[in-house]
Design a protein around this nucleic acid. Structure first.
Lengths: 253, 253
DNA sequence: CGGCCTTTTTGACGATGGTCAAGTCGATGC
DNA sequence: GCATCGACTTGACCATCGTCAAAAAGGCCG
């Protein structure tokens, strides 16, 4: 709770976006230097966000926008019936809180899957900047459109593909995102549990587990609890694409 | 092709947003009168867009933003494998082309399901206005966030619910949208065919057909081809909510 | 290390919904 | 009217994946 906010901290991290190792992934790279300077003034660098801590809950009015610096975060919504619906996982460099743009309230919740560090921008400051910088607006519009495209992709995966294909796509997508962050794309640790993966993919825990086992049996991956190694990327990619998709194969008009 | 563009047309429709019957549904109501005046100057009112005519294709660079004035439109994407993926249906008042905001190119395609009329705003003009009006930016951000929320809802429907629930939700959603447009929410015509419905819901044609038949047998709706009458709204709503959802019922953390 | 709890895996079984196939309905054209 | 073509409906069958159950593997704490 008493986590550092503003001012120097003791982890050797820099205090300007310009020096940030994540700069090339962050939206800050896309705005003009002047705006970035102002951003630096209002950003609160927060660390010590521990596993299971919520960044925000659905329905809460948005107090800040955040960029994830380290760790990982699960985004989910709660349906009227009270079930959880996992909508995505954030990795370092991702921006958190865009879902509040329509109403000013968060559409969903976000919870840390492990120890996290963040850059937070108070909403008031951010809105002020938005009102003054069309450029920043464009960037936000683009980010939101991207998140939308991602949701659409997920839609394809979740509704229409068989279990093997869904899991293959999940692993590959994660792998690709890690690669873009200069992390090992073939050997990584799943920070979310089977339940979250299953929920995200629209499957049950058992099916996810079984599917991972099958992929291991076929020599395509190696799994040991949360640790995954991709052995045959080609084969995995083949599954993700070619596996005859069973449902609704109507051709384009 | 030679359809009217600009200037008077012969259907008795007005030429200012202020007089438009759709004004209360259109984003034009949310911007300041001054901007609306400018909008009026650049809008092209187009009619005679006939069934199966495309408004745009995926990958095309966006030439305009459009508001649907009458008729209905199907939005879809084409996957790498060449399958069609129906992502939504537009009704009068809906805005078409937001998907181009991230890259400048349309993410998906849009095709008329029946005779349509539109208000088109050339992208160049629109972008110019965006650059000058933070207010307009906010409105666009909100619209995009809403479209996103819609996509998320669809995600829930398509991946996790059984066929009966999906179809019930589809009918209710359509009904609600018609109601907001002051049309009869209980008696309407489906402008899309079964194939499109099935694809949108992540089901097969046969299952959609069977499910509609079952709903009819149970006295909840009456179907005759594309014509639908909702007989027992309560019962339909009950199906949409309470029908025990079979998959992934993990509780919130 | 041993107990306890949670997470994950594995197995057996059955229902939902996809597949294939045939039949009905409806619109259009001759 | 009749033929034809596509859209829609209905039926029979069966695969996939959810359900239920139990065992195995980790984690945590004493």
């Amino acid at each position: 709770m008493p986590a550092t906010s503003k001012g120097p901290d003791h982890t050797g991290q820099q205090h300007s976006c310009n020096d940030c190792v994540l700069f090339s992934l962050c939206f800050a790279q896309d705005i003009d230097p002047e705006a970035r300077e102002r951003l630096n003034g209002v950003i609160r660098r927060r660390q010590g966000v521990h596993r299971s801590a919520h960044l925000h809950h659905g329905g809460q009015s948005a107090r800040q926008l955040a960029v994830l610096r380290s760790g990982s975060i699960k985004a989910y919504q709660v349906s009227r019936e009270g079930d959880e619906l996992v909508t995505g996982f954030y990795l370092p460099g991702d921006i958190i809180g865009l879902d509040a743009f329509s109403t000013g309230e968060h559409a969903g919740s976000a919870v840390a899957l492990e120890e996290c560090r963040l850059c937070e921008i108070p909403m008031a400051d951010f809105n002020k900047m938005l009102g003054e910088s069309p450029r920043l607006n464009q960037v936000m519009l683009r980010l939101l459109a991207e998140e939308m495209a991602e949701a659409r992709r997920l839609l394809l995966v979740v509704g229409r593909l068989d279990a093997k294909t869904r899991v293959a796509l999940f692993l590959l997508s994660l792998s690709r995102r890690l690669e873009r962050r200069e992390l090992d794309p073939d050997l990584f640790r799943l920070s979310m549990d089977r339940r979250d993966i299953a929920n995200y993919l629209g499957l049950t825990i058992e099916t996810v587990s079984r599917t991972l086992s099958t992929l291991q049996r076929d020599g395509i991956i190696h799994v040991r609890g949360k640790n995954v190694r991709i052995l045959e990327r080609e084969a995995l990619a083949a599954l993700a694409q070619l596996e005859d998709r069973p449902r609704s194969r109507q051709a384009a008009g």
